[in-house]
Design a protein around this nucleic acid. Sequence first.
DNA 1: GTTCAGTTGAAAATGAGTTTCGATACATCC
DNA 2: GGATGTATCGAAACTCATTTTCAACTGAAC
Lengths: 140, 140
Amino acid sequence: MSFDTSPVLQAWRSRGRRVTAARRAVLEGLCRAGCAADVRTVYRLAKRVHPRLGLVTVYRTLDLLAREGWVQRWEEGGVVRYELDQPHHHHLVCLGCGQVRRWDRCPVPVESGATVGGFLVTGHRLELLGYCPTCREVMR
Amino acid sequence: MSFDTSPVLQAWRSRGRRVTAARRAVLEGLCRAGCAADVRTVYRLAKRVHPRLGLVTVYRTLDLLAREGWVQRWEEGGVVRYELDQPHHHHLVCLGCGQVRRWDRCPVPVESGATVGGFLVTGHRLELLGYCPTCREVMR
DNA sequence: GTTCAGTTGAAAATGAGTTTCGATACATCC
DNA sequence: GGATGTATCGAAACTCATTTTCAACTGAAC
Ligand SMILES: [Mn+2]
Ligand SMILES: [Mn+2]
Ligand SMILES: [Zn+2]
Ligand SMILES: [Zn+2]
């Protein structure tokens, strides 16, 4: 995927965090995983880069990236998914097979920084739920 | 909350399911819990009605209700939430304390039954993320 | 090269949710 | 109202994702 990881590494170094082989590998795995990857997938792909990588470190690094705002974290059907921060977009989720597809429109008119009922809104999450072409076929 | 449980009970009886004290209690707990309650909350409230209620039965009944379409199920920050089916609405979620408030507007123009990129869309999920008045105060 | 705090990974712990199974209690039929 | 058969119940065992612990390791700085 087209994601430049050097700003992340740079930010880490400047804040006194260490740029380790394990963290590089997780970032690389995330890049290769593409849209909305689950932890296992990131682990599997990152392990190709750095075979002695532990699953714990994947959890830790994903959490770090999420806290620092480099990745989005969300859950669907009991599965936690992460993806590198990209131009704002949403997702189509298949209720049949769990597949996720990117949807680039955004119909939500609430700006980040706006206030709704006393809440300071910093973002939003939107998924369209339904059935992918394959699952529609199976259902008929 | 204003939710009439008798259609649920009636539907159960007509399909050969039994209307038990445990199931009534879970429904009652759900009513009392209001907007987007987690399983523990439903359990705690339902137990007041039927003290010997087991947590397992809460899971089972919530799952049953969800499968039959009487409740919505969603997850936020690792917490599974259920709520009785109501007029379509969304939620404001506080990233500080996890509190959930109802938001009645819906800016999503995709009708149920529409097709987006080959997906048959049957619904959607939208949450505004941010900070509640209390958590905003704490942050300053 | 030496130093040392930040980081790692194996193993153990945690905890939400599920499965199992003997006991219980709805619904039905006298 | 009682007897019957089966759906349901709840305690306990289990599963599995995620977190915690801790001794070993290794980037970064000097
Ligand atoms: Mn995506
Ligand atoms: Mn609600
Ligand atoms: Zn599908
Ligand atoms: Zn809050």
